[in-house]
Structure formats: structure tokens, C-alpha cells
Design a protein around this nucleic acid. Structure first.
Lengths: 126, 126
DNA sequence: CGGAATCCTTTTCGATACTG
DNA sequence: CAGTATCGAAAAGGATTCCG
């Protein structure tokens, strides 16, 4: 990032970013985060629901992603009940909701490509 | 992705995607691709120019990312001259240009966060 | 129900050195 | 100038089992 002949960068939470893309990608990058956010975009979901919506993710990965997203302040985790059959719900925070336009743009491009170049396949066995 | 009670997915170049986010992320995900695309968005750049614009990337990584982006059809590589002091230019393809709205949305969010929460630091030593 | 623990494999990343 | 080659470290991802 070059401003008026000087090399400058953003410093955020101790990390240096030379480019705004980097910042966003640090929040939504990786294989799963954007997908999880996508499904939380339209409302609250429980752990098992997310696992069903994202069949290819393992529970371990889902757990890791949810905790990372929570640490970043993008989602909230709410626990109902304290004994084993408990209910945990995840939803976007207000901060997380600011990502929605970007998420929509990303999904729109993917959908466009999928519709024009790809084919729909049935994966009903899930 | 659930349509009328059936589980369907996109199949694109042999890969299965359950979610449109996935498709896009396959093209722009990872640590460097989006940054490279960002700098090519506004015009052609040479290898060494990109290296300067993205100080933290190694030549190896830059090379790998550029080849991956080329394989995906997002950028073109043009070589001028065939003997060692040669000139190689990279630029977005028409297909790559369709990503610009999404890239803009991603950068906008990062910039917003950087401006409100981060600080600008001088990294003039580059 | 909603994970955590463990172990393992795969992929990515980075430093350094070298080349047509 | 624009990369490759090589190596090793680190991170990401996956399968399975177990637990409050």
C-alpha cells in the first residue's frame, strides 16, 4: 500500500497488513469460515445443524472454525441448559453482519460460475 | 445447498461444491491469490513489480500463485523477448475481471476495519 | 448434544541457493 | 529479469475415539 510516496501499512491487533484484502481474508479466509458465515447469515444455527448444512466438514474442523469466528467477534455462541442434552446456538454478531455485503458478492460470483459452467448433481445420500 | 427438499450440489471441473462460497473461495482463497488479483485489477504488472507491491511474499510463492491463477483462467501471462533480460507481464483476463465486484467488496470491508480499528504504520524500509 | 483428545497425513510456507 | 530447486518447518485438515 503506497500513499504519497511512502510505504505504509495497517497495524491491527498486533499484525501488519500491507493490503486491505489481507485484512478481510484473515477473517473469512481458509476452507470453511466463509461457508459457516454464509449459513449463519440468515439466522441462528446449532452445531448439528451446521454440520448437516456443511456435510464435508468434520466436527473437529467445525468446532475450530466456530471458535475462531467467535474469537474474531464475528459470531456469538449461546448455551442453553447446562447438562449434557444441551443446546448451543451460533449467530452473527453486529460486527459479523457488516460482512454480509462482501459475503453476498463472493457467493454471487460463485453462483454465477456454477450456473453457467457447472452442473447440478444430486447428492441425496447425505 | 438444499433445493425443494433435495440435497444438490454444483459440479465444476470434476469437483463437488455444496455451496457457492466454496466455488469462489477455491479461486481467490489462500493467503496470496486475492492480493495478487487486487494489484492486477488496475492494470498489468511485471513479476518484480508484484514482488515490490507485496513485500512479504517470496518469489517462490508469487510464482506459484501466478501459475495457479493462470491455470484458473483469471490472469494471462505475456512474455516479451526470449533471452534472459526478458519481460513478463501479468494482467486480468475478461473472466478474471468478473471478479472485480467481489474483490472490491472484500477490500472495502478490510479497509473499513483498518481505518476504524487499526493504525497506519510506516514501513518505509521496504 | 456438542464437542475435546489424540494421532496422523497433507498442504502450505519460507529461506536459501541457483539458472536460462 | 524472472523465475526454479531443494529442504525443512509449520499449519491445516481428517479419522477416530471418548466424554460431561
Amino acid at each position: 500500500m503506497i500513499i504519497k510516496g511512502k510505504n505504509v501499512a495497517y497495524k491491527l491487533e498486533g499484525k501488519i497488513y500491507h493490503c486491505a484484502m489481507d485484512i478481510t481474508m484473515d477473517y473469512i479466509g481458509g476452507k470453511w469460515k466463509s461457508v459457516v458465515l454464509w449459513y449463519l447469515k440468515n439466522g441462528t444455527h446449532r452445531f448439528a445443524e451446521l454440520k448437516k448444512l456443511i456435510p464435508d466438514i468434520t466436527e473437529k474442523m467445525l468446532s475450530i472454525q466456530l471458535r475462531a469466528l467467535e474469537e474474531d467477534g464475528l459470531i456469538v455462541r449461546k448455551v442453553y441448559g447446562r447438562k449434557p442434552p444441551m443446546r448451543v446456538e451460533y449467530s452473527l454478531t453486529e460486527f459479523g453482519a457488516t460482512l454480509i455485503p462482501a459475503l453476498n458478492a463472493i457467493a454471487k460470483w460463485g453462483r454465477g460460475l456454477g450456473d453457467s459452467e457447472g452442473e447440478l448433481v444430486d447428492v441425496g445420500e447425505f
